[in-house]
Write a protein that binds this DNA or RNA. Structure first.
Lengths: 148, 148
DNA sequence: GAGACGAATGTTATATTGTAACCGCTGAGC
DNA sequence: GCTCAGCGGTTACAATATAACATTCGTCTC
């Protein structure tokens, strides 16, 4: 069974088997996954899959705006907002709040923040293509639990 | 020669030979250096130096607030502002504008940006410990040169 | 339908980045 | 002098990522 072309038409752009599997794994995990964790998920379908298969699927998902890469973790997380990847630099500024205790990641988009970033870029004659904002710290849940 | 305590008294805290050499290499480079490029610089003094020597020196310099790590490049750049590392999460928000054409990096600190980040964290009951803001794109110089 | 061609994917191998764990020196305190 | 703690050196390896080549598949042409 090489591939079935009628599997997931509703998502929008067609994803191949590896891409769909990778996205599913990321959505199911509830936490960021490394490329090699995604690879492990792909191997449930294709036991011989190798790293480039995972990296190519992830790149495609990122290009489609369905997944983000967290640079400070070398990990990947599904995007909870719908937006075009083409917007990444200009109008979007997505902030990730990463709890170093529980690993939870919150994705936040904020217009005033994006506006200020654009303004700073403009003042510096800089044309942004993509922006990374990652905050590490402690989420509310972990702060109230482990007071120490 | 374990360490000479009279090498650079004006910088503040004492740096050992490897740390001073690493910082010098970063300042001289004019662009971010990878850990292994810093290691090459260290080897001019200590030809047998191994990766942990470079990583330890870099970590120390980061802890002292003298160097930043650029997560999106896996590279390191000297800090042009004087500030305590302890501030990193709370009052400081340092933005790096990275030109993908020429590799130049500009370090920008901006109070309104930092304020908005703090506010967003607070609204989400999140306690930030450190924040990464990296903008990729094209600097003014490169935009005016290579119009294409 | 056979063959040529290009795009996508599979596969192998290796490059790059980073760290665990142990060793040995040096210097402080006794 | 002896012990011990801490730092830095060293070895070995783990984790992350990509280059380069082989194969497959679909499509176009004739």
């Amino acid at each position: 069974m090489p591939h079935d072309s009628h599997s997931k038409p509703q998502t929008g752009p067609a994803l191949n088997a590896a891409q769909a599997r990778a996205l599913g794994a990321l959505q199911a995990a509830g936490r960021p996954l490394t490329a090699y964790e995604v690879l492990d998920a792909l191997r449930e379908d294709q036991p011989r899959a190798a790293p480039p298969t995972a990296y190519r699927a992830l790149r495609r998902l990122i290009d489609l705006g369905l997944v983000h890469r967290l640079e400070s973790l070398n990990a990947y997380t599904p995007c909870v907002h719908e937006h075009d990847a083409a917007d990444a630099g200009a109008s979007q500024a997505t902030l990730f709040a990463i709890c170093d205790d529980c690993g939870n990641v919150r994705e936040i988009t904020d217009a005033p923040l994006a506006r200020r970033m654009r303004q700073l870029a403009e003042e510096g004659a800089f044309t942004p293509a993509s922006t990374i904002i990652e905050m590490h710290g402690r989420c509310g849940g972990c702060a109230s639990e482990g007071g120490a």
